[in-house]
Design a protein around this nucleic acid. Structure first.
Lengths: 190, 190
DNA sequence: TGTACATCAGTGAACGCGCGTTCACTGATGTAC
DNA sequence: TGTACATCAGTGAACGCGCGTTCACTGATGTAC
């Protein structure tokens, strides 16, 4: 039953991707390794052939989810004229589609309060991803001095993560939409 | 061993308070009933004399934590001249003390992504608390028309919750401070 | 007011269950000659 | 290139453990007479 090196590498990637989905969808602590491995089409026993522990997978899954979230924002920007880059990324992030699909979205919003309690490795990974997003947004405030642009980007990411999280908490659908719409309006007007 | 009505009511309150602390500090799923009951000075067996389920306690603990967070902001305001009410509340919320003590602080930041996955009851409770905070902040934009004030308050709360959550994730202490400081600056200048 | 009894807050053992992790095993892949 | 053997990806049973919940029990409180 041994698999080729290439197949094994593919399997590993599949586990990380499945983990990112399961964690973002159900939460880190609430997701079991068994559940997660079967989402990747495997049985639980093979897990430790690829990872040292659940914590290690959490860090990698978090990194993966952040990378694809960044990719998604970049893709949204590519379809627009450069002057609307910021608006495009913000609109994508604060869309109802993103709100309604936490598993495929940004882990800072889907797992924020849980990541804050994760080990050093995972939090360092999240910090790196966060800074990448900050840099991208800061690039859109190019007419400002760099430190101002960075400050504005830090606040913008805070607002985006907070608004998306709150829009998922709230039980009133109209209020949920309102949170997203007002945050978007505030971020693109400024 | 039966306790008087008054004592039993006090015990119940103690459990809810201890639960709010434990949940905000360690996360909802990660906190066991046994751990939580012993934090309240009891053994786990008595839990179901007071609550139907863990979920019910989660909802009540969340309500309690939100109420004392609101109380804390109000207290911060009382010590200042009315014109600085907003600044006082924002500074309190985005303080490093609040960041470093999640168990005693705002559950929207400490448990945001977990609450988003809780049952209807808990989320409805959180929604109520959120709206109360929005109303308080909106009151500080009194020179704006009500709908604008509300819109600004929605965005402000999003920024506050997002910034506090991110400041807890980040592994770089300086960056963590920077997130809080910039969010505060942005909110009180506007 | 005093007595007899029902109520019930709190204890601690026990329930089935799923968790993260380990392990013996299988058999295809990779390697050494 | 062919053969013999070591490697190891993946399986499924098993581990100890803590989870949420239930239950028989205790004995002080509350209530009915």
């Amino acid at each position: 039953m041994r698999k080729s090196k290439h197949e094994a590498a593919e399997t590993r990637k599949r586990i990380v991707t499945a983990a990112a989905n399961e964690f973002c969808g159900k939460g880190i602590v609430a997701t079991g390794l068994c559940e997660l491995m079967s989402a990747a089409g495997l049985t639980h026993g093979g897990f430790y052939k690829h990872f040292e522990s659940k914590d290690q997978l959490v860090a990698e899954a978090c990194a993966g989810a952040l990378a694809s979230s960044i990719e998604m924002c970049n893709a949204a920007e590519c379809n627009r004229p450069p002057s609307q880059n910021l608006a495009a990324a913000v609109a994508e992030y604060l869309s109802s589609e993103h709100r309604d699909d936490p598993s495929g979205g940004c882990p800072l919003a889907a797992l924020g309060s849980e990541i804050a309690r994760c080990d050093q490795k995972t939090r360092a990974t999240a910090t790196e991803g966060f800074l990448k997003i900050v840099d991208i947004l800061a690039g859109h405030f190019a007419d400002e001095p760099p430190d101002v642009a960075r400050a504005r980007a830090l606040v913008a990411v805070s607002t985006m993560v907070g608004a998306l999280t709150l829009s998922r908490i709230v039980t009133d659908a109209q209020l949920s939409d309102e949170i997203l719409r007002q945050a978007e309006k505030h971020l693109i007007q400024s």
